[in-house]
């Protein structure tokens, strides 16, 4: 006899918002005033039980208006999260093995307020926004994803970084017992996964800490419970499942930089003019595509966010600082 034991991570069909409902959610919410009243009276989205529920009352932003969203199923089943394997389908298969509750983040380095913070405390009192961003992978595919999150600067300011804080270093969870990719013997990536930003990049209003997608909590395979999203940089800069934030004076050396210094630089800004040594970056495949049409589009400088971020790199040789 087959006895099916429901895992806490299993999603009940009733929890899934269909895409048609999701796309018309604003009119739906506007119409359902009684519902809004109930939601407003509801629990804080950050009580730990609420981590597995939906986020009501998101602040909407104009980002991504007019873009076609990549469906939820593709966003959550086509992932690069090498801690769970290098196949695109591995993270969805194995990321449920990672425990994300409770979760704490260690804040270190050049700041007045450092220490270990519970995720709930870290996010207390913040208001969440929906940011629809393009995500351009260094492998030349891209998606459009409605993230739930908040500007990173709102969190970093809480720690009062001092004048020596020139960079911010981030680290992903290292727990080989729950992350099978970290048990591989033949990988050139070192664990824990390390990423970094210049402080002005980290403080830029486009840079967000995301806690969800599609109005729901972050699936493990997308970097639950807390991940970075830096939309004008290649996807691997948007580090997942963050356990450490460190303010440093020296530029951090990132995991990919260490593994392939000629292929991956510190900045990794989306740039159609600078090819990866093994493939062109001029164009990208917008996913999902179909068997007979690759849905190829031109890649835009800074992934189309040049107006907002180009000034960060004024006077820099982007060919050298790739």
């Amino acid at each position: 006899m087959l006895i099916k034991i429901k895992k806490t991570s299993d999603i009940c069909p009733s929890e899934i918002t269909s895409e048609s409902v999701y796309s018309s959610r604003r009119s739906f919410i506007a119409g359902a005033t009684a519902g809004v009243g109930l939601m407003a009276a509801g629990i804080s989205p950050f009580s730990s039980a609420a981590l597995s529920t939906t986020y009501p009352n998101l602040i909407t932003t104009p980002y991504g208006r007019g873009e076609t969203l990549t469906p939820y199923d593709d966003v959550t089943s086509y992932n690069n999260f090498y801690e769970f394997g290098t196949d695109k389908s591995d993270p969805k298969k194995y990321a449920h093995e990672m425990t994300v509750d409770p979760w704490s983040v260690s804040v270190e380095g050049e700041a007045d307020k450092t220490g270990v913070f519970q995720l709930e405390d870290l996010l207390k009192g913040v208001s969440l926004e929906e940011r629809i961003y393009r995500l351009r992978c260094v492998e030349a595919w891209s998606m459009v994803i409605p993230w739930v999150g908040l500007p990173l600067n709102k969190v970093l300011e809480k720690f009062k970084p001092n004048s020596k804080a020139k960079y911010v270093e981030f680290e992903t969870l290292q727990r080989p017992s729950e992350m099978r990719g970290q048990r591989s013997y033949l990988t050139s990536l070192e664990w824990p996964y390390v990423e970094g930003l210049r402080i002005d990049e980290a403080m830029h209003p486009l840079t967000i800490l995301a806690v969800g997608v599609y109005g729901k909590s972050m699936p493990n395979q997308n970097g639950a419970p807390l991940r970075l999203v830096v939309p004008w940089k290649y996807g691997f800069k948007s580090i997942k499942s963050i356990v450490k934030i460190k303010f440093t004076e020296k530029r951090p050396v990132t995991s990919w930089e260490k593994s392939g210094p000629s292929e991956y630089g510190f900045y990794s800004n989306v740039n159609p003019g600078v090819d990866h040594p093994r493939w062109s970056q001029k164009r990208e495949r917008r996913l999902p595509n179909s068997l007979f049409s690759p849905n190829r589009i031109d890649t835009a400088m800074f992934n189309g966010y040049a107006d907002e971020v180009a000034s960060l790199y004024r006077g820099m040789d982007l060919r050298k600082n790739f």
């Binding site: 089943s77 086509y78 695109k88 595919w141 996913l287 999902p288 595509n289 068997l291 007979f292």
Partner: peptide, 15 residues
């Protein structure tokens, strides 16, 4: 698998 739409977000690459 392809006919079922089971090849994921980038079916040509999977194929």
């Amino acid at each position: 698998l392809a006919a079922q739409g089971g090849l994921g977000a980038e079916p040509a690459k999977a194929l």
